[in-house]
Design a protein around this nucleic acid. Structure first.
Lengths: 168, 168
DNA sequence: GGCTTGATACTCGGATAAATAGTGTCCGAGTCCTAGCGG
DNA sequence: CCGCTAGGACTCGGACACTATTTATCCGAGTATCAAGCC
């Protein structure tokens, strides 16, 4: 009862981000081999058509490259160490800011001055700072880093995934 | 054209957060005087009934205190210096994490080990770290800080708002 | 004149609809591989 | 036996429904104020 249950859900990140991140990891382990979206979907037990949609976003962002037809699929365009988590998040979620300032100070009966003209309001400033810190953290981690972390706890995982993905 | 236009909107923060923050600022300037939600709404030209809903969330979180009846309204329960931006955001948006890990590694044909049992996966870890940085920034700023920033650029704003709010 | 008492107006609070974004699915366009046919 | 050609199967990409969340609104419950009547 002490919780906020009754009122508002809360902003959460799109499911697609998690999927895209995992797929990037898988593709890194595939080491250049083309992997169809269908294969990735059944590896994680996800809806294939919808996962394709997320991979499409990665394609538009230039993170992966797709090739149609038999033996086709998705491949990373760059080295895993050159792809940051932020890039993936931005590709799927879009680049707009979390907080959108509607310039409340500039409107209303008081018209607290045309502050929009000379800079951002205090609230917007604080939010931007926080968001920047968030992005900085995300930009500091690459797909290769994630792979390393996983390998540290489960050394055989990459190999097993690679084998399963490339198996006929 | 280079943008992500076609695919996905992007996660953005609820409008209510901005409204709630501005209202906290207004209440701080009101200096303990009770201000009805209706008054706050017309100050910012916002839908009154919906703004009330946000203030309701602040009430449940214990940030403001409401009194019904004539001469009633909302008041801050604490000193503006003791209310952080994070508290307001959490009150309105809810406390759950932005990134929700669905434990993709633990499912699927490979079953990469019951990692859920021994800790969080690499992706979840990175996301949590970034989110923590975000929260830390938000927790480092108080309503009083915001007030100070505004006063630095527009010294007469607090007084004007106070007078307008407390005028019959 | 002071006090009781009733009505009134104003406030918040939760329950109820409309709009928007996220989720999920389907079918068509394009490409490569494969198998058959002819030389 | 080798090259050409037609078919087929597999892939992605964008267009089309469905569900959940956000946004917005309304009406009822409660309370302090105010005014009138009574002592």
């Amino acid at each position: 009862m002490g919780s906020i249950r009754g009122s508002i859900g809360g902003m959460r990140m799109s499911q697609g981000v998690e999927w895209a991140l995992h797929c990037c990891l898988d593709l890194a382990w595939a080491e250049g081999a083309a992997v169809p979206g269908t294969r990735l979907a059944e590896l994680h037990e996800l809806p294939p058509a919808y996962l394709t949609k997320q991979l499409q976003a990665l394609t538009k962002a230039g993170i992966v490259r797709s090739t149609p037809g038999p033996r086709g699929g998705y491949r990373l365009t760059r080295d895993p160490a050159e792809v940051t988590v932020l890039e993936v998040v931005t590709a799927v979620e879009g680049g707009d800011e979390l907080f959108r300032c509607t310039d409340l100070l500039g409107q209303g009966p008081l018209q607290a001055g045309p502050r929009a003209a000379r800079g951002t309001c205090a609230i917007h400033l604080t939010m931007s700072r926080a968001e920047h810190a968030w992005r900085r953290e995300l930009a500091g981690t690459t797909i290769a880093d994630l792979s390393g972390t996983v390998a540290a706890t489960t050394p055989d995982a990459p190999g097993r995934v690679r084998e399963w993905l490339t198996s006929r």
